[in-house]
Write a protein that binds this DNA or RNA. Sequence first.
DNA 1: CAGTGGTCTAGACCACAAG
DNA 2: TTGTGGTCTAGACCACTGG
Lengths: 234, 234
Amino acid sequence: MSAAGEPTGWQAIQEDVLARIRAREWPPGTMIPTEAELATEYGCARATVNRALRELADAGYLDRRRKAGTRVAALPVRKATFAIPVIRLEVEGRGMAYSHELLSCRREAADGALAARLGLRTGAEVLRIRAMHRADGAPYCYEDRLVPVAAVPGILSADLRTVSANEWLVRNAPFTRGDLEFSAREAGPEEAEVLGCAPGAALFTLDRRTWNGSDAVTEVRISYAPGYSMKSEI
Amino acid sequence: MSAAGEPTGWQAIQEDVLARIRAREWPPGTMIPTEAELATEYGCARATVNRALRELADAGYLDRRRKAGTRVAALPVRKATFAIPVIRLEVEGRGMAYSHELLSCRREAADGALAARLGLRTGAEVLRIRAMHRADGAPYCYEDRLVPVAAVPGILSADLRTVSANEWLVRNAPFTRGDLEFSAREAGPEEAEVLGCAPGAALFTLDRRTWNGSDAVTEVRISYAPGYSMKSEI
DNA sequence: CAGTGGTCTAGACCACAAG
DNA sequence: TTGTGGTCTAGACCACTGG
């Protein structure tokens, strides 16, 4: 009458190993048996043990090195993963009605600082896009974005009032790498006005830059309305 | 004269598939060949293709379903991963000298709201710990923590002036699950004083609760000094 | 040098779900 | 029903690195 089936195969081994670590059968810092020994103990192939242990090492529970063997991490570094969907899906995923509004969209010339950040030449043409995203009509976040025109030429012919720049770029501008930075900032006068909050209010902010190979695709700051929080489980 | 060696094996396949997706050889939403077909094309075993594609599916680039096959995701959901180390290592990792200071540590009785959040009975004994973490002597973050004594009895005999509660718990109190919440908050009078900032300053805040099975291990709020940011790459 | 994890193979069976 | 991905196996070779 047990409701949920117990895991089998490599997942069962993974859970058993994790349980033995938590139970201090293998205390932090100690070596655990080799893959071959565990395969014998669990009565499975070594590849199955490898699959189980590799994921535990990725998750920070184990330190593995050739020849040295596998050791229980002394200070396990837990990792939190956050999905970064298109803002529309983020809002709809919270069960609210999404809408967005293009505030401005104009061409500018990159100044020296921007050119250096994105690896452009000074004076390169960039599209500056400002937009509001709303949930059930209330301000959800404010997006301030720069797109180098040369790297993403199609952006000029996109109707950014119909599809937000955020979603258009996800669909049409692949990138190979990017960096993210989350911080807390005080709302400036402009942000306070568009977000409908007091100047100086604490804003959860995401700054992101992405590249496709060596070409910058976009730089964006997303300022969430007060009350926003980013959740995850570990 | 190429400096770095090209990936081989499953990583080479993974990069090739990713390149074909980015090049729109397989546009978003379309099916890609089956594992068996790709194995033939790449001249390797199906398990090798499986390894490459499974990770791309985990990363959000592909949607895979038995019988239906593998499809390129229309809106790839990029995932950002943040390591959550012990605060001491986080500070030292930034090349700064770490120190911490126990502000207060006393036993309290859980009120109704707290008991409900953590699944305790009302009136259960909890340890309330407040501490400052410093980097090069300057405030780094302020920690306000609750630990149910029954679930973590050893905490009573720990010297939390020598080892912070943060690190003591990571070393001694395993947990099976937890939830995280990042937000931006305005500093209250107490926080402003201990962090040395103005009241109302924007604080990057982490709220975390962890459980070991059904027992709550700890609930903590970490308020970072103004200027802090959490970085990651994708 | 030798022991450990990292990877690959060829084949097999299974679980799931589309048609 | 049947084609697809998910997993396992037994064996093999390789890469790295500690002794």
